[in-house]
Simulated assay, not measured.
Amino acid sequence: MELRQLRYFVAIVDHGSLSRAALVLHVAQPALTQQLRALEEELGARLLHRSAQGVLSTDAGKVFYEHAQAILKQVADARAAVTQSADRPSGGVTLGLPHSISGALALPLLRAARAAYPEITLQLTEEISGNLTEQLKSGRLNLAVLFDDAPREHFAATALVEEDLMFVCRAGSSLAPPDAGVSLAQALDAPLILPAQQQGVRPLIEQAARRAGLVLENVIEINSIAILKSALLADMGATLLPVAPLQEEIASGALAAWPLLEPGLARRVTLCSSRNIPLTNAAAAIGKLVRQVTEELCAAGTWRGARLIAA
């Protein structure tokens, strides 16, 4: 198996046809077809379905595509690590952000990276936390912002902030609590809109409920922040979340938030990298910048509900 075969395969999948991939790669289409056939023979599996409309990945092809992407990224990172300067880091860095963090961190970080490191190409990927974990393990991400349930045996982690969970519902909703705060038992009595199990804050809430002898039921599971906001605004239920992804709606008065009491819950946000794949100078520089931007956001109160964890 050769690196060029991996590049050819990824290009074919990305462009959806052999002919378009051949044009982009500047390779004759018969040669591209030959390399693809050799790759499928070596793997003993068909990777693509071919038709007049183009190509689609088979199940085996989808699995191989993820590995091929990770291998090509690690090769590019290894090349960059050898050639780039520690004083002027350059090259590509891919950072993964959970949906619920990107609203607070993504734009300030992009601005800071462009100002401090113009020769670094920073690519941000927004995913649910479970997907980010797998992508960081495989090497498709250089860095990822994850929560305190990240598998520590695989990652080196730097703590960033703690975010308090709050009870949030539509302003004026019948679900709004009468007092200045709400207990966990009161919160769990309401119909809750939460991420699916093992995603985001859900494990934290499930664990707290078990410790308190409570049951989490009557849950609407939504993994998309945008759809969750729409459901809250439609008064389909309340949620238990940090306020950062909802701060625009809270500031406008469309949503209202109350602190969670008895007990309060907070999640720890960490910056993670793989223990097995060394960071390039560029990735290390972006990692330091994430910490710096986080400190600035907390000092300014821009990252609402977040408490900086001392370095």
Rank of each mutant, 00 (worst) to 15 (best):
I225P: 00
E40F: 02
Q53W: 06
A112M: 13
I309V: 15
Q292W: 02
E119K: 12
R111M: 08
N218A: 13
Y8C: 08
S129R: 04
A106I: 05
G54I: 08
T58P: 11
V27L: 07
L240V: 14
Q35W: 06
R307V: 12
G130E: 13
R307G: 02
S17F: 11
G301M: 14
A171E: 13
A196M: 11
R307Q: 12
N218Q: 15
V13S: 10
P118A: 03
D59C: 02
V82I: 14
D148G: 15
G213W: 10
S138G: 12
A159N: 14
V215I: 14
A176C: 06
R20A: 14
G103F: 11
Y65E: 09
S174T: 06
Q84L: 05
L25E: 10
Q53R: 14
D179V: 04
G103N: 02
D77G: 01
L289E: 01
L255K: 01
E162W: 01
R46T: 01
V201Q: 08
L3T: 15
G54A: 12
A284G: 10
G96I: 05
I193G: 04
A284W: 12
H49W: 09
A282S: 00
A284K: 08
A76L: 05
E249W: 06
A52I: 13
R202P: 02
C298Y: 13
L233P: 04
S85H: 15
L6I: 05
D189N: 15
E41H: 14
S17V: 04
S183R: 05
E127N: 12
V269W: 02
E119L: 06
L297M: 03
I250S: 03
E2M: 06
S51N: 08
D148R: 05
Q34G: 02
L255N: 04
Q123E: 11
G92K: 12
T83H: 08
D235P: 05
T121S: 11
G16Y: 06
R304H: 13
I250H: 13
C272R: 00
E217W: 01
P203Y: 04
S173I: 00
P98Y: 10
S224T: 08
L216V: 09
E248Y: 04
A231I: 01
A113T: 06
G253T: 10
S129T: 11
C272S: 02
P263Q: 05
A70I: 09
L261T: 14
P242M: 05
V10I: 02
L279S: 14
A28H: 15
A116W: 08
K137C: 00
A300L: 15
I193C: 07
K288S: 11
A52S: 10
D77A: 09
C169G: 10
Q34N: 07
G172H: 02
Q53L: 13
A106E: 14
L95I: 01
N276H: 10
R20M: 15
